[in-house]
Design a protein around this nucleic acid. Structure first.
Length: 794
DNA sequence: ATAGGGTTAG
């Protein structure tokens, strides 16, 4: 360690500072610096040579700001040949920031006549990409051109890297293509560019082109391409890369190994990920994080949490925010609020609760676990909120059944100036679907086009779903036809759309198209097809599809498929066949499945089978209020009042509450909601008056209230009134009085449409001379001239 | 190399 007290002459100082640079002795160097400042009172008097050495020292001790200040105090004539010093300061800035200073110094350097070299550009460009400052980067590219440095491999690679990181892939490609010579680093920069933007195929293409041009891929190439392969779930390509790594002994490298196991996790191959994890001779925190993340992604979140516990014992230091975010995501996946809260406490203890990324994960966890209060409270508490925070809360609201609040949050987000991103739209569009809020949905479509989101398959799929659930199959079809890439979800969403509109034959034809275009169906495809058949009464077609599902497509039917079949037989009135079908199932029927048969018994008034089914439900344990409602209705239809009353009592004892029916209608972009007998709407008086008028007209035309839909033990006339003010009728009446007389009315209900309302609406279309559409939980009912499109299959 | 928000069915 140098000793400061014996230093006196300039030469001594220089020698001493050189020793400091060698041993990175910042403290001693600073003492010397201080001494000069004291002697002169200002920096200017210090000899250039000393300043030069001080600058060097500060650079080597990673103090770029100090170095910069000292450098600036060197008299300008002495600065001219100090390019190396300048480059080094810029490099230090570009490394850990502040990045803006690197750019500033570059301009100071040019202004004071110091000529930049090929070693200047890579660093200043790195700073530009860190700042995402395309404009400055492009200007600097121009400077390099003027200095004829744009032929240099080093500078060009830096330019490619800069453009790629700023998302200017075309510009990057242009520079890359014009390079006279390209080494592996240049290729890697280009590959990582495609990879960074999820362009898996382009990245793979480039690597094979690289091979053709006899440029040997190195481990950085592998590391660059693996995330793209994982993102696109291209297992086959992933295995090729893995094989390549094995041949080159790359897989023992932590970074390569971590990349490989992450790729396998993203491709859903947890076993391969484990194998690589186990074989890695050295693991770091990123490795553990990737492995835990792989467990969470592959639906083994509990294993991931266990691994997290193990990591805390095996690795000495405390976990990083990234790991915590992964673990919290695991809690969300497990729907485990208890562990989620514990991890939240732990996060607070480690002091990460102010990190936005961690906060957003916590927020999403609370929202997904259905804890409305906690998620809202947490959201309000967050000091900084970005589009991800809003997206998380919007998605959480929709998924827990509060789509109207999701729309409110979407509006609030724009009011406070946070711009909706692609994933925000992925929450917003389903909210529009749920509410059948077409006008909001159309706005969302427009916005998505403007922002370029409609290039994304998932956004288009969400749009298809939105249009079809808003009753606009033509528009859904239009989106579908315009898509350049379709996936199985796109096809499924269309089939579902045809199904819920009662267009079973179109659904089947569409399935033919799907096969002709080479799209493989999945299990959802068949659920959609079978339910389309059951909504259209296509029993034989459904039976055929059920057969070929296994025979031709190797898809093993799950409970959902059996449910659809029972539903199909039941709705069409083949009760015995439905019953027989249940007995052939490879697994035990649950309450949900029996309920489907019970519903058929109620529609087709088969009391004996209904009772038998009801006993089955009792034995497996009723799981929903619907079980009781159906049985109750069955007994009242048969006028067995005592039995009906018993059902009611039992329901109460077991604590199953009736979910209140709610209907809504969109008028001028505002969604108006109603519950039965609701007087809260501003125009209630008008609505009720309209319904009374309609009621009288309906009776004149022969309508009789189906009073067994009323649970309460009240007089017949009172029952009629209760029926008259059901939520769907209120919504329709409001539509009639507030929409132009030639406009169709579209109402959405959160439950199945009530039988009496279904009858009444047929009359109302005649009286009001309007098309009325009601979407309930299972399908669309298009009423026109006294007929409903459902053909009584509902 | 790991990391927050995400589409179809029941």
């Amino acid at each position: 360690m140098p000793n400061t007290s014996s230093v006196s002459t300039i030469n001594n100082y220089v020698q001493f500072l050189e020793a400091c640079i060698g041993s990175k002795s910042l403290k001693e160097g600073k003492i010397i610096h201080q001494r000069f400042l004291k002697v002169d009172g200002k920096d200017l008097g210090t000899p250039s040579l000393v300043l030069d050495k001080l600058t060097h020292l500060y650079i080597s001790c990673k103090r770029p700001q100090l170095a910069h200040r000292v450098f600036n105090s060197i008299p300008i004539p002495d600065r001219k040949n100090k390019t190396i010093l300048c480059n080094q300061i810029i490099r230090a800035y570009a490394w850990d920031g502040p990045f803006k200073k690197a750019v500033d110094l570059y301009y100071e350097m040019v202004d004071s006549g110091v000529k930049p070299t090929k070693y200047t550009y890579p660093f200043v460009l790195k700073a530009c990409s860190a700042l995402q400052d395309v404009e400055t980067g492009v200007k600097i590219h121009g400077h390099a051109k003027r200095l004829n440095l744009d032929n240099d491999v080093y500078v060009c690679t830096a330019l490619v890297d800069f453009y790629v990181k700023c998302g200017c892939l075309l510009e990057a490609r242009e520079v890359f293509d014009e390079m006279p010579e390209r080494d592996v680093v240049a290729w890697n920069a280009m590959v990582s560019g495609f990879s960074l933007h999820g362009m898996c195929w382009e990245a793979i293409g480039l690597v094979s082109e690289m091979g053709q041009r006899r440029v040997e891929a190195n481990s950085s190439t592998v590391v660059a391409i693996l995330p793209a392969i994982g993102e696109a779930s291209r297992l086959r390509e992933g295995k090729v890369v893995h094989g390549f790594c094995l041949r080159r002994y790359f897989e023992v490298d932590v970074v390569v190994g971590t990349g490989l196991l992450d790729m396998y996790g993203k491709c859903g191959q947890l076993r391969y990920a484990w194998e690589i994890f186990g074989a890695l001779p050295l693991k770091n925190e990123v490795t553990w994080s990737a492995m835990i993340g792989a467990c969470v992604s592959c639906d083994c979140a509990e294993v991931g949490l266990e691994l997290f516990g193990k990591m805390r014992i095996e690795v000495g230091h405390s976990p990083s925010p990234v790991i915590l975010a992964t673990v919290i995501r695991g809690c969300a996946k497990l729907n485990d609020l208890y562990i989620g809260r514990k991890i939240h406490c732990y996060t607070t203890k480690l002091g990460f609760v102010s990190e936005l990324m961690v906060c957003n994960t916590l927020l999403s966890m609370y929202a997904k676990c259905g804890s409305v209060n906690e998620s809202m409270r947490f959201f309000e508490m967050m000091q900084v909120k970005d589009s991800v925070s809003y997206s998380a809360i919007i998605t959480g609201r929709v998924q827990t059944g509060y789509a109207d609040e999701a729309l409110r949050m979407f509006r609030k987000m724009q009011n406070v100036g946070v711009e909706p991103e692609l994933a925000t739209m992925m929450g917003f569009l389903p909210a529009c679907s749920y509410l059948a809020a077409l006008q909001h949905g159309v706005c969302g479509h427009g916005y998505s086009v403007v922002r370029g989101f409609t290039e994304d398959v998932s956004i288009c799929n969400a749009l298809i779903d939105m249009y079809s659930k808003c009753g606009k199959m033509d528009d859904a079809r239009h989106v579908f036809d315009k898509m350049s890439h379709k996936d199985v979800v796109s096809w499924n969403a269309m089939i579902v759309g045809y199904g819920i509109h009662g267009l079973g034959r179109e659904a089947i034809l569409f399935f033919q198209d799907m096969q002709n275009e080479g799209q493989k169906p999945d299990e959802v495809t068949f659920i959609a097809l079978l339910s389309a058949c059951s909504h259209s009464g296509l029993v034989n077609e459904g039976k055929h599809l059920f057969l070929i599902m296994t025979k031709e497509f190797n898809i093993v039917p799950k409970m959902d498929h059996y449910f659809c079949m029972v539903d199909l037989f039941g709705r069409a009135g083949f009760l015995d066949e439905a019953h027989k079908f249940i007995t052939t199932m490879p697994f035990e029927a649950d309450a949900h499945l029996w309920n489907s048969l019970l519903s058929a018994c109620r529609v087709h008034k088969n009391i004996e089978l209904g009772e038998e089914v009801s006993n089955k439900i009792q034995s497996v344990g009723p799981t929903s209020t619907g079980n009781f409602v159906l049985l109750f209705n069955l007994y009242t239809t048969a006028q067995r009042w005592d039995d009906a009353a018993n059902v009611r009592i039992q329901q109460k004892v077991l604590g199953f509450k009736k979910k209140p029916g709610c209907s809504w209608v969109e008028v001028n972009g505002i969604v108006h909601g109603f519950v039965g007998g609701d007087w809260s709407h501003q125009q209630s008086a008008k609505i009720y008056k309209k319904l009374e008028e309609l009621g009288k007209e309906m009776k004149r035309l022969g309508y009789r209230a189906e009073s067994d839909f009323v649970y309460q033990d009240v007089e017949e006339e009172e029952k009629e009134n209760i029926l008259l003010y059901h939520s769907e009728k209120l919504a329709v009446a409001f539509g009639i009085i507030s929409l132009q007389s030639d406009k169709p009315i579209m109402v959405t209900k959160n439950l199945r449409v009530c039988g009496d309302c279904h009858t009444a609406l047929k009359y109302i279309t005649i009286i009001a001379k309007r098309d009325i559409t009601v979407r309930d939980t299972s399908r669309f009912h298009h009423f026109r001239d006294g007929i409903c499109s459902c053909g009584e299959f509902w």
